[in-house]
Each structure stands twice: as structure tokens, then as C-alpha cells.
Design a protein around this nucleic acid. Structure first.
Lengths: 198, 198, 198, 198
DNA sequence: ATATAAACGAGACGGTACGTCAGGTCTTCCC
DNA sequence: GGGAAGACCTGACGTACCGTCTCGTTTATAT
């Protein structure tokens, strides 16, 4: 395989594709999601509108792709540290998540994405498959190890535990209902562990 | 005080105000939030567009108001049952919340609201003040009683407990990442109580 | 009779009437006819819109009145000089008319008036009665004297002669199709006299 | 040269252009100039408003164009009859002009045009170039021939004579200050010839 | 190496909705 | 009880984008 990206068509211009995704990402960052228009993306990318409509079904899809393109560069297989100490490991990863959400550079695009996802179930599914699930799976693997090691209750529902760990974080960020601090991350980890300890 | 609602102006037509809020609510239910337009609201309400722009700064504000108007009719002071059994009481309220979220009649407007709130911090604040906070305060009161009765740990962080109870619910609903069932409600209550038990 | 002006109603506020006419005249001068609005007139005059609509049927009528109010202050009975030399007398009056049209202070309101008159026959009639006819009658009287004195042909059609004298002037001004100079005034007089000499 | 009309752009849709001009002409005839709106023109023409705004700067310009389009279809080179008898030839053309002005079909659009021209000097210039001047030039040519043939004074100012012939006509029509009859046409010709005879 | 067919940039098109503005009517409150 | 103030409904304004649809013009195989 020569290119990482499956070519939707042999003819497709990689040049244009990249220009569009870059333009989309930049515009979301600059003007906020709501104000981004297909016309602006096309203009910034130096591309005809038709070229966007040819390959993406909606504005949301373009923006989702532009964010995925960014985050997929880094990944490969995500995996958590496993020091044997589940508390320490979780604190690390939840603190990192908190920091990421607090980063203004992530703010605009991710907020854009969520805005789009809310009333587009199809987009929501794509998002889950390509962004949330891989991350969740990595954490789930670590939790499984911990459970096997007797650090969590034998019957612990790991999916629920995942939700307990991440949902409050997500809600605070989305609704701006409270600050996202390392202390808060730690409190979440403590609470989750208390709920699911053996 | 003769009217519940503070008149933004003595001149303001209550008739028009009601017609606008009703039209907004109906249209959100019928066509989905994204497709609702100011023009359609004005037309349905038999009102000039200017009358909307005169009193509301944005489409989101109209819709928020229309939903608040609906939910504020019912309230007065919200309060939870207090049977002395915190687990039973919480199950009741969380199950009710799950049911409410699952009700298609609530689906459209609340989803609309959240969509708008995501990138309008001001709207988000209004929403918190007038919808979320009163509800949260009611639950917080019940939790306080339970803590005083020794059913929860003395140092239990009740705000965090609130988040643990509601955020996973909210996330599942918003991202459609899982089913909302009575069992799920019970699982959340169990987990929260386990985490914060004495 | 205490006031010069017939009171449309005993109740009518002369104060408001004057303020409205003044505001109208000023606004026409400042912003040009097309951009004058009833709202602006009301605001400038410190008057409710209704007070204008109560007493005038249209914007054109207000403006016609405002111009008439100005020009009727000065008049009484208009009459031309009669030196016995019809050529000299006509040159004087036509030159004066040319000068008046060339005066930028008259430009805006009169242009406004004509603009309104073109497609409002009723307004046109009022204008003729109260502005054009008195002026025409004055000139016609002088021409009659000249004809009686044998300075014009016995069968001269004085109404036609009036048109020959004034229409070219009016047309040049309205369509801006040529300069309005004293020489032009003289040329018109010469031509008219040549056409109607005995 | 295959088409008479210079294409403002190769892209421009001649279909839309024609539809707009036709709709404009019809609407002016039906509802009067003042009440014609861009929206109505667009709707009648089956065209987006933007397509009008893209190619014309103002409502007046569209309507001027729509009238010009009509009158330019017929012309080519205008020329007057030359029977050798200047009086007969002028009577013919002035009578024709009178008849044209009296024709209700011309009434609405031409009145509309003049209404717009009064306070839009730019439009007035365009009007002169494309409608008035060609007509005037044709008459001026005929007058020149007559002067060369000794039927008019050697020093006759032909531009002035043109004004004497047409301005009274125009004024009567515009201000509705008198009837437009063949007799009136003849009287104008007689007067003009008397003023400029050798 | 050349033909051919797609994808491309450009941008006009018919539309929808925007947010603003003025018109003319109706209502409220003050003097 | 007239008049200022101004909210109301109406409807046009001119603009921004939508998504579709040609236009030539690359560009990249497939002869």
C-alpha cells in the first residue's frame, strides 16, 4: 500500500482534498463553526464548490473529516500506560483528557463537531467509530487488566465505569458548567474507583 | 403581583409574545430545530419579523424561551420525594429523567436547545440558571438530607455526585451512544451510592 | 380672521403643523427627495407619525405643502414690470427664472416636487393651481398688454407663447440637457418675440 | 458581428436577461412604476433576485434597459422624410410624436423613466445618449437640409429650434397641463417656423 | 504520444432566509 | 380628548449561501 488513504477514485486530486480539509480546519478555528460556509471553504482552498459537493455529503462531514485527518495522523494503536497501579494510570489519562479539553486549540473544532453530531445521527455514528471507540477501547483494555488483577470488583461493568469517568468531564466542557482542572480529574478517578473497587 | 412574567415593556403585546413562543415550540416539534426559521415562526404566529427581532437577539433565544415557557408552567418549587430511603428516592427520579429523555415529544426541542447552547455561552448560562439549576438544587437538597441521615459519606461532594448521576445519562442521550432504560437508571443510582456511601 | 391660514380644524396644533413643514423642507434640502421618509420628518419635527397621517394623505402632499408654505409667504399678487418695452420686461423675468432654477437652494425641493408630480395627477393639479397658474397669469397679463399695444400679433396665442418661453427652460433643467444661462434666457425671449411679432 | 448586444459576460444567460426585461416592462405597464419591485420582477421572470442585482445597479437601470430594449429593436438609423417641404415634414414628425405620447401603452414606462431620471443624473445621461440624442440628431439633419435650402434663416440655431418644437410637448405631457392634439402639433410647427424663417 | 474522459476552477443560476428598514395602523399614556 | 410616543403587521430591501448546473482547462490513464 503506497498511500495511507484509500483513494475514493484514482482520479481524485489529493491536492484539493488536503486544501479543503486544511481550509475547513482553519476556518473553524478562526470564525467558529456556525459561521463556516462551504463557499468560504472552497474560496480559501482555491477550489470549486463542486469539488466539495462531489466528495462530501454535508458541511458536517467535511468538518468531521478535517478533524479526523488531524487526529489520525498521530495515532496508530492507542494504548495506556500499565504500571500495575490502576489509580495512577487512570489519573494520568484523565488528567491528559482534561488538559486536552481545556486547550483552546481543540475547543473550536471539537465544539463544532459536537454541534453537528447532535442532530445528525449518521455523523454521530461515524464519529463514534473513528474517534470515540478507539479511545474507549484503549481504556477498556487497561480496566480489564486491572479487574483481572483484582483491583476492581469481579463483576464491574467496565462500560459503565468508562461513562462515569468521561461523561461528567464531557458535560462540564460542553455546557461550560464548571472548571476543568487536574483536581477535578483526580476526583473523578477516585470516585470511579470507589464505586467499582472489589 | 398580578402577572407572573415581568413585562419587558409596558407597551409589549403579550398576545404576540405568546403566539411567537407557541409557534416556535410547534415548529421545532414538526420540522426539527435546524430547519426552523425566524420567517416561519413569524408567519405561523401571525406576527411581523420585526416583532421577533425587537425582543429576542437570536433564534436560539426564542427557542430557549419557548421551551422554558413550557417547563416553567409546571413547576413552582420542584421537590423530590423523601421516603427516608435515598436509594428508592433516587431510583424514582433518575428513572423519571430517563423516561423523559426517551419521550419523543421532548426529543426535538431539547436537542434543539442543546445544539444552540454549544456555541453560545450566553445562552448556555441562561439555560443553566432557568432549567438545570432549579432541578439540580432539588436533588441536592435530597442528597443533603441523606448525608445528614448518615446514608452518604460525611465528606461526600454532592455536586460531584450529581454529575455522576446525570452526566452519563445526558451523554448517552446526546450522542446516542447507548439505550436509555430503567435498568440503566438503576445502575447509575447503584454506582453513585456505592461511590459515596459512608 | 385671526390667522392667515384656514384652520383645517379648530383643534389642530399650528405648532406641530409648522414644525412638520419646516422639517420636511430641511430634510429635502439635506438628503434629497428620494431619501426623505415620513418617519424622519416626524422625528425631526418632534411629532408622532400619526399627526402627519392625520392631516396629509401622502408624503408628496406634505412636501408640496412645505414648498408652497415657503413660496406663498412672499407673494400676495405677483406682477411683472411694465416699462412699455415687452422685450426688456420679458428678458428680466425669464433671466430671473433662469437664475432661480440655477440656484442650488431651489434645486432639491423643486426637483422633489416634480418627481412626485409625475405620477400623481392629483398632486399635479394642486401644484398647477397654487404655483404655476398664478405665475403664468402674471406673465399672461403682461403679454396681453403688449398685444393690445401692437407689440405682438393680433392673433397671437398667448398660452402657446407662454409655453414657448418656459417649457424649454423647464426641460433643460429637468433633464439637465443643457446649461441655463442669461444668454439662453435672452435667446428664448428673442425667439418667442420673433414667432409672435405682428 | 452576430449579435447586436454586447455580452456583458460570456457566461451571462440571455434567456434570463430577456425574461427580466420583459417582466419589468410588463409590470411597469400593469402596476405603474412606483409600485414595481425588484422582487416582483424576479418572480415574474422566474429568476433569482441576485441575477438582477448581478447585472443592474438599480431598479431604475433595469427599467431604463427594458424600455431601451423595446425601442432599440425598431430603429436602426432613424431618419425623417424629406419631401423638400420642411413644414409638411415637420408636421408629420411632430404629429407622430404627439400621437406616441398620447398612446397609453407608452404612457406608463416613459413616465416611469422620467420619474427616475429626475433625480439620477447618471441615468439621465444614459437616457439622453441612447434615446433622446439619436432622435434629435435625425430631426437636426432634416433642419440642416432645410436651412441649406433657404427655408430657414441662415443663422438659425437648430438646437434651440429643436427645443422649441419638443419642449412644450414634453412639458404638457409630463405635467398634464394641456391636451396633446394634432392641432397642437401643427401650432408648434407653425410657431417654430415663424420664429426661424429667413 | 496521443486521445479521451474524469475531475477540476470558476462562477452563473433559481432559490431561501437573513436582518433591516419604511410604510401605514393601532394602542397607550400624558398633558 | 388631542397628541407624542412607539409597538404592531406588512412587505421590500440588498446580501449571503445554498446546492445545481454548465463552462472551458488540466491531468492522468489507456490506448
Amino acid at each position: 500500500m503506497t498511500t495511507r488513504r484509500s483513494p475514493d477514485s484514482a482520479r481524485r486530486s489529493e491536492r484539493s482534498r488536503q486544501a479543503i480539509l486544511t481550509a475547513a480546519r482553519e476556518l473553524v478555528g478562526e470564525t467558529g463553526y456556525r459561521k463556516v460556509t462551504i463557499e468560504a471553504i472552497a474560496a480559501r482552498a482555491g477550489v470549486g464548490k463542486q469539488t466539495i459537493y462531489r466528495w462530501w455529503p454535508s458541511k458536517g462531514a467535511v468538518i468531521l473529516d478535517s478533524i479526523l485527518a488531524m487526529s489520525e495522523d498521530e495515532k496508530g494503536e492507542i494504548s495506556l500506560p500499565d504500571t500495575g497501579d490502576i489509580e495512577a494510570d487512570l489519573r494520568l489519562v484523565i488528567r491528559a483528557t482534561v488538559a486536552e479539553f481545556a486547550d483552546p486549540a481543540f475547543e473550536a473544532p471539537i465544539r463544532a463537531l459536537n454541534s453537528e453530531i447532535i442532530d445528525d445521527p449518521e455523523l454521530a455514528a461515524t464519529y463514534r467509530e473513528r474517534m470515540a471507540d478507539p479511545m474507549n477501547e484503549a481504556v477498556r483494555r487497561r480496566l480489564r487488566t486491572a479487574r483481572a488483577a483484582g483491583q476492581l470488583a469481579e463483576d464491574a461493568d467496565l462500560d459503565l465505569m468508562l461513562e462515569i469517568l468521561y461523561a461528567p468531564l464531557y458535560q462540564r466542557w460542553l455546557l461550560r458548567s464548571g472548571p476543568l482542572t487536574p483536581d477535578y480529574a483526580d476526583a473523578l478517578v477516585d470516585t470511579a474507583l470507589r464505586a467499582f473497587r472489589p
